[in-house]
Design a protein around this nucleic acid. Structure first.
Lengths: 341, 341
DNA sequence: TTGTAGGCGTTATCAG
DNA sequence: CTGATAACGCCTACAA
């Protein structure tokens, strides 16, 4: 930061008036003489005056900055949510600090400390998959920083939440697979103890139950993360079973794509031999051969709504309305990697 | 931001000492009595004291905040660069404000104004594809804010730059295609007047020339952007030519994937009838069938180096070493969407 | 219509 | 070893 930036008192001096007059002139205070206002604004422009938001923040105890904590930014899922968040918040004059936890609880803790120090006005967070305690978030809340949790739930944490009905998304997918004739449906699940993982697993289980299909332990395999690489081994485990599945429901599209890749390598025909359904509807997926069936989530809306809810808190800081828990419905998108009903 | 946050003077009062003593105790000033230090730190912990970085920034004229301007965050390319940037900067105690221009010059202008106002210590920028004048960046520089431009060049702007040898990447790809026997090579180019677009186009042209192949105007089609959708129509234009190409070099992977998609639809066999090569090496591409040949760029390194160069300026604010222009070499990755040599 | 004074939270400087 | 003071840039209640 340069030290030679022009300030209000610089302008005041040159004009032989007081700093407060300059301050008022800059915001067109009605009680000022028009000439004064004009003189000040002209000089301000000429000198390229930029208000120092730092000083303003300090005075107003308000930084107009929001912290956003996500597991990682390179996934299309989270970066799309961020776009939704930014579109709302930037338009309301807020700055956004995006922080990646890299799925690490420890980094998440450090991030929260930092956000506290820089005095963000609010926080939007999707916790890491390794986060089991949420005290750090409670701490934020206790310090008066409103929080909205999105996508991944923090059970028992009493804050506003914007989630997706993962249970329903999974249920729809499995129900469809069964109706299309699949009987041996496997689930490439995600990291354990994550709300999204759990809910999708439960949807899977209940859909089987409802259709009187047995649950086979060996058909449920957990990937340790959400990348392609992490999908390879679990898929192999599944397809090398003596009695391999005739359908795979994957925790997300990357894993589903790995599954397609391995399935083809092992000479399974998709969808004749095996149906595959993913989750997220990433932009690439429709261009695969066969085009991937998947469960679409309203990513952009998730971001927007989370931001809007946070905004509403920032506007009425005092009143504590009852907790909001918004749940979006996902939609099954059937393409060609699963048999049509 | 809560008003009930504990400050240095809160601690001072409770301990009946002065604020300056507390300030010193908090940073283990050697001249203080150990008991004082302990008392202060204990109380600080107990009260969950968090230093107000705002006040610090105001005083030190230094915000420890860096602005990053990119066209959009949802592309894997830019989000990976950001990760490289963050890994370097966060470790050095900086906060990062990520701003999306959405490929709009106007938004870029607004972003620069804002960054100036919040007094960022430095800026990393990859300009929008519609930016033709760089006065706003000069203004930043004149205000004493160091800038590093990455990936997309700003011709005639005298700042440090971290670029990729796009010319070479294109040249390698075309040369390979020619050596593999392709004779009618088309180029799905990108938005005009972008440095990366121009350099890749030039590499394409020169590789043809070097190999004594004629340049056909109709084989050069510009996509208006970098998304799948924007690749569809240009590909159709190309493949419906009376004399369609036997190879397509696409400006990026998304466009290349669209090209593969359309080519298959129109019954071109890949790579027998037509070879396709993309640019970027996005993670999905290797899982396509056929796996996409492409040009890899060291995204993470681009981010890291840009951040490091910026850091070096922040550490020695006075001396103006001569401009750095670092150029990474891309690498051709041959998979199955192009004929092997 | 404009100026003065005080304060937001912190730390460097000078005193004691 | 510790305290008082001033300053970073801005705004606002109060005064004139």
């Amino acid at each position: 930061m340069s030290s030679k930036r022009v300030t209000i008192s610089d302008i005041a001096q040159k004009l032989n008036i007081s700093a407060s007059t300059v301050s008022r002139a800059l915001k067109n205070h009605p009680a000022l003489k028009k000439e004064t206002i004009k003189a000040v604004q002209d000089l301000a422009n000429k000198l390229n005056y930029q208000p120092n938001l730092l000083a303003l923040s300090l005075r107003q105890k308000k930084t107009n900055t929001i912290g956003v904590i996500i597991p990682e930014i390179t996934s299309h899922f989270f970066s799309s949510i961020i776009t939704g968040i930014q579109d709302v918040l930037v338009n309301s004059g807020y700055n956004i600090i995006i922080c990646q936890s890299n799925e690490s609880y420890k980094e998440e803790l450090a991030i929260v400390e930092n956000l506290l120090r820089i005095r963000v006005d609010g926080v939007l967070v999707s916790p890491s998959s390794r986060t089991k305690k949420f005290n750090h978030f409670s701490k934020l809340k206790q310090s008066g920083v409103p929080i909205v949790v999105f996508d991944r739930d923090c059970p028992n944490l009493e804050v506003d939440k914007v989630l997706v009905d993962d249970y329903d998304g999974a249920f729809q997918a499995i129900d469809y697979l069964i109706k299309s004739g699949c009987k041996k449906i496997a689930h490439l699940s995600g990291p354990k103890n994550l709300s999204t993982t759990n809910h999708r697993l439960q949807g899977y289980l209940d859909a089987l139950k409802k259709n009187n299909l047995p649950v086979k332990e060996e058909y449920i395999v957990h990937a340790s993360g959400f990348t392609h690489e992490e999908g390879i081994q679990p898929t192999k485990t599944l397809l090398r079973l003596k009695n391999p599945p005739d359908a795979i429901f994957a925790i997300n599209d990357c894993i589903a794509i790995s599954a397609m890749y391995i399935a083809k390598k092992l000479d399974f025909k998709i969808p004749e031999d095996i149906s595959i359904i993913g989750f997220d509807d990433e932009p690439h997926t429709r261009y695969f051969k066969p085009a991937l069936s998947t469960v679409w989530q309203p990513v952009y809306s998730i971001g927007m709504l989370s931001a809007r809810i946070l905004l509403s808190h920032l506007k009425n800081p005092d009143n504590t309305p009852k907790l909001r828990k918004e749940i979006f419905k996902p939609e099954l998108v059937i393409r060609h990697s699963s048999i049509k009903i």
